[in-house]
Design a protein around this nucleic acid. Structure first.
Lengths: 321, 321
DNA sequence: TTGTAAGCGTTATCAT
DNA sequence: ATGATAACGCTTACAA
């Protein structure tokens, strides 16, 4: 493997000069520059990036923490980050955690070890104080409302968006409303639960815990929802579904069992994924790809101040409500 | 940032000794070891991994090239690799290429630059000779049949599996068979096309180019397939669909338009994804997560010889054929 | 068992 | 404009 020293020898210049032409620095005479360039070509030279990293203290790697990669929500977020990474010459290091705290900490450690320049946490299990302890070592960006804290974030106000959705259902005459969610813990989930409680209280509706369906993340999870609803003596008439993917699964399963949508059950999805359009699912659009881009940009922007970007959502009416 | 030198000073030993306890080497007296350990605790020390990499020439990073991350086929492959990476203390660097050759080359460059220890290419656009040129710099693993070439691979014989599927359809009485595929180029696709041609020839069936549907990768692509079929005067009676996701989309769209499955159109999917089970889709099971694991292991195994692992597939009969 | 010192391949500082 | 040389933080002969 030829290195910068070899090049210097071949071109009859110093390593400094080689480094200069490599990095497009000024102050190098044309003939020397050419000599170096030629040496580079002849030798099939490639810089050892680890050496560069050690020397510069940067890695051009950004870590991304997601619970699951094989979930459209996160896949879309990643998509946005990946495209922005490409434009800025960064690479993404992926951490799939399955919501295991130890794996999140591994990612945090990599930040501390300087193997990554920044860490974007799309959804977390670990406590706030854990994260805080690592803030010292590099930017950590979150995809949840962090206003008031010393970390940047791009997020949607899930309280607000849930409220929009609930109000819409109410307008359409629904009084027995439930919702499907991935997990009950987590900042975003708690925001939604709060919205739900406030809504129910506001309109003097009964709070019905059985109307909350957990573990709804994939298409196929729709089946359980339908099953449980069918067993209920007093089932909900409408469901907020925090992922279009799951909403699509519910629609499909409902069709198979001759449950009419929205007649017997109204459905309001989230994200406005392509599948929602195809299946005509009413949904709350969340520009995930765009959020991904913004998250990434926050990660590589070295402004000391924490920034908080709230992303607005919009209701898209289709045929399931 | 405290470094190994500081530790040495604090513990009153040499850097070598510190390095030894850091790496669990033998030959270090208990009291010195403890002194170092204590210094580590006191100082909140964390090794700079880039320095380690430069020194050792290893990065414990493995690159993964996929065209799209937000596609279940690749997501499942990645899932397998990620879990194996975890067990072996490696991290994954993801390259989403969208089948752009330049992006594949970027990944190859990172191998050359030693930023990654190995590169796993799940699906490629670039030519064989391009890959060959980079073989020199580190292991490159492919997810396609590479027998006869000097690269390792884990793959399914798509010719064989397509043949199994086609035969099954034939047995069930189908004579007008078509198939849906992501893209027509690519090693795997060509294998399938070959199988299709041989099959058709074997049974003296007409080769009907219109029965081949390209650009079928996501659920929502099912809609176009149905649309095109409805416009045909002589539509196929059965379809091989190279992703269950798409098959599910076709089923859904068919239901909406009162097309009976398998009555009007039989469907045979691939992969046996969860969605196939839920929607009762007959499919060819391909153990993608397992393939992902094996690919990863090949990447980090430093045997000089190329290894070729063929993964068998099995037909799972359900209700769409 | 321990330590000195030479790498690893760059970039950055500082003379010249 | 150019080049020594130190620095980055670690591992690893080699010596003791």
């Amino acid at each position: 493997m030829t290195n910068i020293k070899d090049l210097a020898k071949m071109a009859g210049v110093s390593v400094t000069t080689v480094s200069r032409v490599l990095n497009n620095h000024p102050y190098v005479r044309e003939d020397k520059r050419n000599a170096v360039l030629e040496a580079i070509n002849r030798s099939n030279y490639q810089p050892n990036i680890n050496a560069v990293h050690l020397s510069t203290g940067k890695s051009f790697l950004v870590g991304v923490v997601v619970p699951y990669i094989d979930h459209p929500y996160f896949a879309l977020l990643i998509k946005g980050m990946a495209s922005e990474a490409l434009e800025n010459n960064y690479k993404l290091v992926l951490f799939q955690t399955n919501y295991l705290e130890t794996r999140e900490i591994e990612a945090l450690q990599m930040l501390k070890q300087k193997q990554i320049d920044a860490l974007i946490i799309c959804s977390r299990k670990c406590s706030w104080s854990t994260i805080e302890a690592y803030l010292l070592y590099g930017p950590i960006i979150l995809c949840e409302d962090t206003r008031g804290k010393r970390v940047s974030s791009t997020f949607v106000d899930h309280y607000k968006s849930f409220m929009i959705a609930l109000e819409h259902l109410y307008q359409k005459g629904h009084r027995k409303i439930g919702y499907c969610i991935g997990r009950k813990s987590g900042t975003n989930s708690r925001q939604r639960e709060l919205a739900f409680k406030d809504f129910v209280e506001n309109y003097h509706l009964p709070y019905e815990p059985a109307y909350i369906f957990e573990h709804c993340t994939h298409f196929e999870d729709g089946e359980q929802v339908i099953e449980r609803i069918q067993q209920m003596s007093n089932p909900p008439s409408a469901l907020l579904v925090t992922s279009d993917e799951v909403a699509a699964g519910i629609v499909t399963c409902a069709q198979n069992r001759n449950i009419s949508i929205p007649g017997d059950l109204a459905l309001l999805g989230f994200n406005n994924q392509p599948i929602a359009k195809m299946m005509n699912i009413t949904t709350i659009e969340i520009p995930l790809v765009d959020i991904g881009r913004k998250l990434f940009l926050q990660g590589i922007n070295i402004s000391k101040e924490a920034a908080y970007q709230e992303i607005p959502v919009t209701l898209i009416e289709r045929e399931t409500v």
